[in-house]
Design a protein around this nucleic acid. Structure first.
Length: 948
RNA sequence: GCGGCCGUUGCUGAAUUGGUAUAAGCGCAACACUUAGGAUGUUGUGGGCGAAAGCCCAUGUGGGUUCGAGUCCCACCGGCCGCACCA
């Protein structure tokens, strides 16, 4: 092979492979911890710590397209920049390898999930290595590594063994609650005596407090996937986020995490985080905090007792307008209050044509249970319901109001019961109209209001009773007044309600972390002692989930692990002094979110076998400081689709671990950045089918495939739209440095935009020009001269340094590249005019481009005579004296329109500039003798003259 | 329906946050070097009028605030995203 020094695909490939090997061999990206196993270069560890992280990937089998590494390239550039500006930077990448995608892929290909997952990870690692990402590989792991999930299970046990102390506002060990129950400092629910409870009863009591607990509750059952799902994994139209199968409500015993205990802190602590407002807003909405009141409505039962139905309302001020009441179909009190026969006064339309309330209720329940959420959404929102036959007493005015069952009230929100105020609520108005119920306005609508329910502010009317008179008050005052009255008279209380539900934490899957829980012969759950962790997934022959007809709600989940009797039935000594006993293992597994709830902490201390992370090391990297009041990762980059899933769960786990004293950071991610999506052009033929984008040619202003005209649109990149571009292709044609530059130059990181293969060459040309500015393509000799650069070049250089530094700090990679390009173009032009490139300028350009295009930068740096890698070299610093131009172009405007340009010194005073501007011939000509009313001067760039 | 974001050139996009609109890249055109160019370099490239100097118009549309608006305010049009019978 004849040696060539021309920067082309071949040379780029050679340079890149060489430097990737060099970095690996020299451990260039190995970041020292302050102590412990990964302690190293003490000088480096003494620098300020910066922790930069990507959302780690699923090891998917289909390989990467150029959209996948966008965020990784951005974090790599930023991490490199931070290294060059005096920081000790932790940067690595692991794999989120448990969960549905990995398992489904394994099922499709008929191989064991571990085998296919490992193969996929190896493939992705090779693809990522080709991009030159500066990861500390010693810190990488996959969530499926037993050494990692040992600690996932350990954290589960911590959560299981704690409760939320409302008074203290934090989680505490469950033992402290047991002690309080035992010595009577805390009352046992139901007024029972702790010492008199048996083991089963105690377990049940504690289950009401534990932050991880099993309960029988309506859950999201997805027959098509064969598993239950968390609320966050179900779409608005009642389908599974993965696979898009229908989801049904089913009552099943499942594990939950009491995330609701943290609702307020999860909202409040958002304040201090540097996250996109849109994501904060989504989290706030998801948690759905709303302030209002609980109000108790007495209902007489058929057997002469009195029941109390509690409602939640955000509008207690409208209580006098409550003319009926509605319970959700699943409400537990319906049976107790429904009489055997319809009361005499029953309106014909209220019975649904049934002979008795019991029949009507049963029929209505059957009708609404048969509807999946999908159908409920698809139907028009016409209100349906049925009378229970019972009447409640409105506590403020003693009115007897009918109680209905209707599915527009949801058991999962508030108390599952509402007071209906048709005068002020559009839904209640609609229902009242259908069932001919009375409507009483309690807020005076404004003059000319001709709508139905009035939801705005106004003076209260029709709102006076024996104990309280709201008339004339505005909404806020009326709320306060009525809440005070309710509390005084024991009829209710001000309260806060949340939309957030507890997190359903178990799945009927093989490919997940087994629960470290066993059941004794009485069915009481016992945690495994930490010494028995990790509880490894057993090897089984049949790991596929039992799935069902997607529409068959009448099915039940079956856990793959339960098929393995040898593993399920065990004899263990739990170390509780009761010796070896027989147990059955929990056969559910954890959801794939478990592994991603705490992985940032494990990067810090990945091989620690004594603790999830050493406290000193955790404090060094993640501990709170002035800029991060709750601590956390300095920069976390990933897609916005995790706004309420991973990001909420991870925050929750961090807070529990923080409360229990295991970590110093109460928030996992201080600064969050959502990268946009790289889209791609989609070409469709006349029938609307996508055609292979790579085969489309553009001519005569149109696009053609196989001689046929096709139309172009912008869509997602992927196999199904036949427009995927793999990073391997781009690397082969231009090299990884060009790919990196192009992805960073395409536009702002947080904006989505289409990939344009044609435009990649622009960044390739930048590197070629840079290369030629340093050395001779024919001979390979360095051509830079050891002379001082001329003044103009020096200014261009320092301006570029200044701008690039600020752009990289702000993650504005596209404009940073534009500034480097400008400087390089300046140098190229000067060289073309016979001014050789000065060493100082060449080296500065190499350092500026180093975070973005590290391979070519290392190569040029070495050729410029340096023996050491530039990865830890100082980034150039701009000299302020050269950042300002020698002369500045000042615009002279007349009434805001530019009429003249002046070259002036940057230090010119306002008065001097005004004098110069007013003497300028072009200005005089434009003014044409008009008198001057006002002159605005912003030296040195602008003068605006306003003629009278 | 509620909430949030965004409309700049043929395309991707800049604009120190109210102060020269259109940086940089792609594409396109011309020229140079070349046997050749899908290489490289140079120059040009929002629209209109003009020989030129220059003038007028232009940041989705219409209004407003200001000496001055892509930027701030109001209304509308178009697009994207989130939530949605949440009491």
């Amino acid at each position: 092979m004849t040696e060539t020094f021309k920067y082309g695909a071949e040379l780029a490939a050679d340079i890149e492979a060489r430097w990737q090997d060099y970095w690996e061999k020299h451990g260039t990206y190995e970041t020292p911890n302050p102590s412990g196993e990964l302690a190293g270069d003490a000088e480096l560890a003494a620098k300020p710590s910066k922790f930069v992280m990507d959302m780690f990937p699923y090891p998917s089998g289909s390989g990467l397209h150029v959209g996948h590494p966008l965020g990784y390239i951005a974090t790599d550039v930023y991490a490199r920049f931070l290294r060059m500006t005096g920081n000790n930077v932790l940067y690595t990448l692991g794999f989120d390898a448990f969960g549905l995608p990995a398992e489904q892929y394994a099922v499709q290909t008929g191989t064991h999930p571990r085998v296919s997952t490992e193969a996929n990870m190896a493939n992705m690692k090779a693809q990522l290595r080709r991009l030159g990402l500066g990861h500390d590989r010693r810190r990488s792991f996959a969530t499926i590594d037993p050494g990692y999930y040992k600690w996932t299970q350990w954290i589960f046990l911590q959560i299981f063994n704690s409760w939320y102390d409302q008074e203290a506002g934090r989680a505490r060990p469950i033992d402290e609650l047991v002690a309080a129950f035992a010595d009577g400092t805390r009352e046992v629910p139901g007024g029972r005596v702790w010492a008199e409870l048996d083991e089963r009863e105690r377990a049940d009591v504690l289950g009401e407090f534990r932050l991880a607990y099993a309960s029988d509750a309506p859950v999201n059952w997805c027959p098509g996937l064969g598993t239950v799902l968390a609320n966050e994994e179900v779409t608005a139209d009642g389908r599974s986020e993965r696979g898009n199968f229908p989801v049904f409500k089913a009552k099943l015993r499942q594990w939950n995490m009491r995330i609701t205990a943290y609702a307020d802190r999860l909202i409040d602590d958002l304040e201090q985080l540097e996250w996109p407002e849109a994501i904060k807003l989504q989290q706030r909405n998801w948690i759905g905090r709303s302030e209002g009141a609980r109000v108790d409505f007495p209902v007489a039962t058929p057997d002469g007792r009195q029941e109390t139905v509690t409602v939640f309302t955000t509008r207690p001020d409208t209580l006098f307008g409550a003319t009926y009441m509605v319970l959700a179909p699943e409400h537990p009190l319906i049976e107790a209050i429904a009489p055997a026969a319809w009361p005499q006064t029953t309106h014909g339309a209220w019975t649904g044509g049934h002979a008795t309330p019991a029949e009507a209720i049963a029929a209505y329940r059957a009708q609404s249970a048969a509807k999946s959420d999908v159908e409920r959404q698809a139907e028009s929102r016409e209100k349906t319901g049925v009378f229970t036959g019972a009447y409640a007493i409105n506590p403020v005015n003693g009115e007897s109001i009918p109680v209905f069952v209707a599915d527009y009230v949801l058991m999962g929100y508030g108390t599952g019961a509402i007071m209906a105020v048709p005068g002020q609520d559009p839904r209640d108005w609609e229902f009242a109209t259908v069932f001919d119920l009375p409507i009483v306005r309690t807020v005076q609508p404004p003059e000319g209001f001709d709508g139905e329910a009035f939801t705005g502010d106004g003076p209260a009317i029709n709102s006076a009773g024996e104990g309280v008179d709201l008339n004339g008050m505005g909404v806020d005052e009326a709320k306060r007044t009525v809440i005070a009255y309710l509390e005084e008279s024991g009829l209710g209380a001000g309260t806060i309600n949340y939309r957030l539900r507890d997190w359903l934490f178990s799945r009927q899957r093989y490919w997940g972390e087994p629960f470290p829980i066993v059941y004794d012969e009485e069915g009481v759950a016992h945690p495994l002692p930490a010494s028995m962790l990790p509880l490894e997934l057993p090897e089984v022959d049949d790991y596929s989930p039992r799935t069902f007809d997607a529409d068959d709600a009448d099915t039940e989940p079956e856990t793959p692990l339960s098929r393995n009797e040898d593993w399920v039935n065990v004899e263990l000594d739990l170390g509780d002094g009761r010796g070896v006993r027989r147990f059955r293992r929990e056969t559910n597994t954890m959801p794939n979110w478990a592994g991603s709830c705490w992985y940032e902490m494990r990067y810090l201390d990945p091989h620690n076998d004594e603790a999830l992370v050493d406290p000193e090391i955790e404090r060094y990297w993640m501990g709170p400081d002035e800029s991060r009041p709750h601590g956390g990762v300095d920069l976390y980059v990933g897609g916005a689709e995790h706004a309420v899933l991973h990001l909420l769960y991870a925050r929750f786990w961090s807070k529990v671990l923080f409360d229990l004293g295991h970590v110093s950071a109460a928030e996992p991610f201080h600064r969050l950045y959502n990268q946009g999506m790289i889209q791609a052009y989609v070409y469709r033929d006349a029938r609307g089918f996508p055609v292979a984008a790579a085969e489309v040619e553009e001519r005569d202003g149109g696009y053609f495939h196989d001689g046929e005209q096709v139309r172009r649109e912008v869509g997602k990149m992927g196999k199904s739209l036949k427009n995927a571009v793999s990073p391997d292709e781009v690397c082969a044609e231009y090299g990884a440095d060009t790919l990196r530059l192009y992805e960073m130059a395409m536009g702002p990181l947080d904006v989505s935009r289409p990939w344009d293969t044609r435009a990649v060459v622009g960044q390739f040309r930048l590197l070629q020009r840079l290369w030629r500015n340093v050395l001779d393509e024919e001979t390979g000799t360095v051509t830079v001269v050891d002379e001082a650069p001329d003044d103009a070049t020096l200014r261009a250089m320092h301006k570029a340094v200044d701008g690039v530094t600020r752009d990289l700090e702000g993650l504005r990679f596209n404009t940073a590249i534009a500034k480097i390009t400008e400087l390089n173009n300046h140098v190229t032009k000067a060289a073309g005019n016979g001014t050789p490139v000065a060493r100082e300028v060449a080296e500065t350009m190499v350092l500026l481009v180093a975070p973005l295009a590290p391979h070519v930068a290392e190569e040029l740096w070495q050729r410029l005579g340096h023996d050491e890698s530039l990865v830890h070299h100082d980034f150039p610093v701009a000299d302020p004296a050269y950042v300002v131009d020698e002369s500045v172009t000042c615009v002279v405007q007349i009434k805001g329109k530019v009429r003249a340009r002046l070259e002036v010194a940057p230090a010119i005073t306002d008065a001097e500039l005004e004098a110069v501007a007013l003497a300028d011939p072009a200005v005089l000509r434009a003014l044409d003798g008009a008198p001057i009313r006002k002159v605005i001067v912003r030296a040195p760039k602008l003068v605006n003259i306003v003629p009278g």
